[in-house]
Nucleic acid binder design. Structure first.
Lengths: 201, 201
DNA sequence: CGGCGTTTTGAGAGAGCTCAACATCGGTGG
DNA sequence: CCACCGATGTTGAGCTCTCTCAAAACGCCG
């Protein structure tokens, strides 16, 4: 849900805009929280680094999406936010947003509903990450992310990015997609995947 | 955070109490949502069933914890809730809770903060589920769930339950715990695990 | 004591990861 | 316009680790 639809103008007016180069960090785990953040352009990923030094992608946000909602109630960030492409973000300071919620009940409730939806989508992601099989994981991703036509899945970034988002090695993803295409289950296009025969997935 | 601390008495008065036998379902995916649910006694797990017929545990709630928060804003449940032990739950009807939030701003904000925390803990769980290695996954679980003393991890149910919660086969969990104990990293007691040498974990 | 579910241990197979080599593509600069 | 370069995309081979199937020891409760 777009920020303009529910965040009162007073809070929106306090926004700070910031541009990020690809690979640049918006914030790091442990930094003090600034506030709610909306992605205006590009893509920003939330990630943590495991003890083996590998990055674990928790979420990828595109234009219109917000990140760091939970940080309104925390003093420190609990993960990294890094631009996956050149990006522009708007930061709504914590105090301004909380003040707006105190005055505008509808805004507060809309925000709560947003969080509730996020909880559901995170559960879905847990379900995905619990799947060991690359094929099933890809299948699950495709079925969750089909567009309105029910057959097309738009790909935001590179396949390598997707592999990271899926928690697979990029080789495994390549192989799985190739196998699915060979089997006639999908067709790959530039920046998209079209489901051909759900039966074969 | 205990429900009594933030939910207004008016909403609490509308609660319906229900007892569940071990294995009994509180609700199933697709059922119409009733409202917020608090676990009074026993343990209730949230789970989905994957297409291979295996159950994927999304969360296990114990006494004092609430489940189905997100369902306040949805019309259908998006996962199953099943009693892992004999249990008692209190259901606060959706309308009563939403009405309370409309009147009591502090309650609404406390609820929002609860959701925000849940988002964070779900992210942590995604991180965990992304780990392939059984050893690392157990290590992650232990480090996230150590008690106040920093060395003891209380186990709610059986090791088999824990294996399901971790998304591991129970054999893998047994072997991993045995190996960690042999290495002197942990010590197992009844219903608990004590960390001995974090170095060896 | 008998029965059932949990806890253990063993062996084998499958699947993804890692390392490695190579092809492709887009952008840059001569 | 073309050569170069880095990153993405692709494929191959071997290894490791977990899963699965099996079987047995253990513990608890009637």
């Amino acid at each position: 849900m777009p920020v303009e639809d529910w965040l009162p103008a007073a809070a929106r007016a306090a926004a700070i805009e910031r541009t990020l180069k690809s690979g640049e960090a918006l914030f790091r785990l442990g930094d003090k929280t600034a506030g709610l953040c909306e992605v205006v352009a590009g893509r920003v990923r939330l990630a943590r680094v495991d003890r083996a030094g590998r990055e674990i992608v928790l979420h990828v946000a595109g234009p219109g999406e917000t990140i760091a909602e939970a940080s309104l109630f925390a003093s420190r960030y609990h993960c990294d936010a890094i631009a996956s492409t050149d990006a522009v973000v708007r930061i709504y300071p914590k105090t301004a947003v909380l003040a707006a919620f105190a005055q505008d009940r509808a805004a507060a409730q809309a925000f709560t509903a947003t969080l509730a939806r996020q909880v559901m989508s995170l559960r879905t992601r847990i379900e995905q990450r619990n799947i060991r099989s690359a094929r099933e994981r890809v299948r699950h991703y495709l079925s969750v992310n089909v567009g309105a036509d029910g057959r097309t899945v738009a790909l935001a970034g590179t396949l390598k990015d997707l592999a990271a988002e899926l928690g697979l090695s990029h080789e495994a993803l390549y192989r799985t997609l190739a196998a699915l295409e060979r089997a006639g289950a999908i067709k790959r296009g530039k920046g998209k995947i079209v489901l051909m025969r759900a039966r074969k997935l």
